[in-house]
Nucleic acid binder design. Structure first.
Lengths: 200, 200
DNA sequence: GTCTATACAGCGATAGAC
DNA sequence: GTCTATCGCTGTATAGAC
């Protein structure tokens, strides 16, 4: 039961925001009463904690899978983009992107958890970017940390805007130039070089 | 009076979201009653309409100023970034970025107004990018439209993430690699070339 | 674990006096 | 234009029976 509650609440947070749904919404959808929900999650703050914890764990597992696949940096970034695309396909915003907007209104524990989520994302991306810069598949110039921040920000922002338009292709269109600017130019006399994320 | 109401409401929307504040919040801050607010704005939906209209008009005027300054494309983009930076400095999110997150919960007229805001931004950026591509100051490769979308998305996303951290430099760090990837490489044998937004 | 019933605060909104 | 007073509704949360 707890997991079904989380399923419904998760969708509602991602589509309407933490301040945009109520226990009554969840209860109605599951055909139970509000009181039943309070048995599983004492209050909305605790429900929020559980939502982020599960979401972050699932995301971390997806990143582990990408690491295990032994891909080069551009391919890993492409896989990372696919994670976002899947969320968008369900007409949702990234949960923590949504919560970032509402940040000032969140209970303290949720605030900390949101920050932790983005820290984990940035750390993972930073390693990928370092890998790519060493291998020469990603452009040098900015620090791996700054590039990681540009990627998270660019992806979250592209999602944020694609959703109101109801147009997934807007996400892809907005992300492509960002990645194109990060991937290293093929070296002179290396005409045959190509990667999934090459410009054009 | 109406403009003071808008001032307070504007700050509350940008910091807490449209679902994160109430008439009571505004009334308390202005030392008036809720009923007084309803005299100026019939309902929250009408208040929201007025908020976006004023915000969008102010933003459009700022873009006009940038056009009037007769700058090259990278300088215009830098000026555009400064607009975002100023909002962030006041510990706020872009109003329409915030509303984009809450989009599904907004009254219909507000939804339309949010879309219009982003359309105007993209159109302006698209012209700037075209100008830069023709002049050779911005990289070719992606369409001006896609690059414009990447810029709006990247900026909104960088804001979205910088605010929870309470760290303005995060915005700049996240935006720099994005712009660096868009600005054209200085041409060979043009060592002296430099623009405000060059890589490094 | 789920229910009924209820408490109590807050919400957006309105009527009518001043 | 602003007030007092109040409405009807929804919000989160709890007590206690089953």
């Amino acid at each position: 039961m707890a997991s079904q509650i989380l399923d419904v609440a998760e969708r509602l947070v991602q589509q309407r925001g933490f301040n945009g749904f109520s226990y009554a919404d969840i209860a109605a959808e599951l055909h139970v009463t509000k009181a039943a929900l309070h048995y599983h999650f004492a209050g909305k703050a605790e429900l929020g904690d559980a939502l982020i914890a599960r979401y972050a764990a699932r995301f971390a597992a997806a990143l582990d899978d990408l690491d295990a696949a032994d891909l080069d940096a551009p391919a890993k970034l492409e896989g990372y983009a696919k994670l976002y695309l899947e969320v968008l396909r369900n007409q949702r915003m990234c949960m923590c992107g949504m919560l970032a907007a509402e940040y000032q209104t969140l209970p303290e524990r949720m605030q900390t958890a949101v920050i932790d989520f983005f820290n984990a994302n940035e750390t993972w991306l930073e390693r990928v970017v370092e890998q790519g810069q060493c291998a020469g598949t990603l452009r040098q110039g900015d620090s791996a940390r700054d590039i990681a921040r540009a990627i998270v920000g660019g992806f979250e922002g592209a999602m944020l805007l694609a959703r109101p338009y109801g147009d997934i292709s807007r996400f892809q269109a907005g992300v492509r130039p960002l990645l194109a600017g990060l991937v290293a130019e093929p070296r002179i006399n290396h005409r045959a070089a190509r990667t999934p994320l090459r410009r054009r």
